[in-house]
């Protein structure tokens, strides 16, 4: 069970949005990080057969994406900003999408309520989609994506716009459903990946900058992350010199966390790298290349 991508290129007109992408994604959660416009959504759409590739090969569990019907029966997709007909209740929306997924009446009956319960929407089964909050819609989106019990679940920016509590709940939900299937999570929120994924890919301007495990990713920035307490007045100057990953100001003092390949000129303490540090290190290193 894997998603295999070989030499994938995608052009929109003359603009190349995916550049010779090679990637294999196995069972478990895979986090795809990247800035807005990095090509994450395009990659997701190619995998879900919603966009045609320009060249290269993409297959899901050995089935090329050209065989759309077969691929669609294996893939569950939660698009960015998911919603459904406002006049439908959660239950009706699930039933409608279940029919489009080719499920029988019995299968729909067996699966809809347990899935709604799993995403904590059992009390809102009769609530109209138009009356749902962003978080509820996103949970409904996950439920509909799992309705036909797909081998692959693809979720695009699922936590954007959610409040912290909803975000944590959603991450936990994703971890739960990742058992015995591939979950591809696309996001620009590093915390989502850090909290849920075993494997990480970093996409920037259509190119895959990194592909590996979380440990390998952290190792990129290991020994180059520092913590220091500086005067607030020095903050601007330090920010110009180093990529700063976090700032906490108290009175006239600022506690900062930053990345530096060499020991800094001021008093600073080395600390272990997090995913956010590694991500910023990678992006910073990439920018310096150009």
């Amino acid at each position: 069970m894997e998603i295999k991508i070989e030499h994938l290129d995608k052009f929109y007109g003359k603009k190349q949005v995916l550049k010779d992408l090679n990637l294999t994604i196995g069972e478990g959660m895979y986090g795809l990080l990247g800035t807005n416009g990095a090509g994450k959504t395009t990659l997701m759409k190619v995998i879900t057969t919603l966009t045609k590739k320009s060249s290269g090969e993409v297959s899901i569990c050995g089935i090329p994406v050209g065989r759309a019907k077969e691929v669609r029966s294996m893939v569950g997709y939660l698009p960015q900003d998911f919603s459904m007909y406002g006049g439908m209740s959660a239950c009706e929306a699930m039933d409608y999408l279940g029919v489009l997924s080719g499920l029988t009446k019995v299968q729909r009956k067996e699966r809809i309520m347990p899935l709604l319960s799993r995403v904590n929407l059992q009390e809102d089964a009769k609530t109209k989609v138009r009356a749902m909050s962003g978080g509820m819609r996103r949970r409904l989106g996950i439920a509909q994506a799992l309705l036909h019990d797909p081998k692959v679940l693809i979720v695009d920016e699922p936590t954007a716009g959610l409040d912290p509590e909803e975000r944590v709940r959603f991450r936990n939900l994703l971890c739960e459903v990742a058992q015995s299937r591939i979950v591809l999570l696309s996001t620009h929120i590093v915390g989502d990946v850090e909290a849920t994924c075993e494997h990480i890919g970093v996409l920037d301007k259509g190119e895959l900058l990194f592909n590996g495990t979380v440990e390998e990713f952290l190792a990129l920035a290991e020994g180059q992350v520092y913590r220091a307490e500086i005067s607030r007045l020095e903050l601007t100057k330090v920010q110009e010199m180093y990529p700063v990953t976090s700032i906490l100001t108290t009175g006239g003092t600022a506690s900062i966390r930053f990345i530096s390949e060499k020991p800094p000129a001021f008093l600073a303490e080395k600390c272990s790298a997090g995913v956010e540090d590694a991500y910023l290190y990678l992006m910073h290193a990439k920018r310096r290349e150009f």
């Binding site: 997709y77 698009p79 919603s83 007909y85 929306a93 999408l97 489009l100 997924s101 994506a145 036909h148």
Partner: peptide, 18 residues
Amino acid sequence: LQDKRSKGLAAMYSKKMS
């Protein structure tokens, strides 16, 4: 036009039915 307004098109498109 309900389809377009609903923001559910991508999910519907990704389903199996022809």
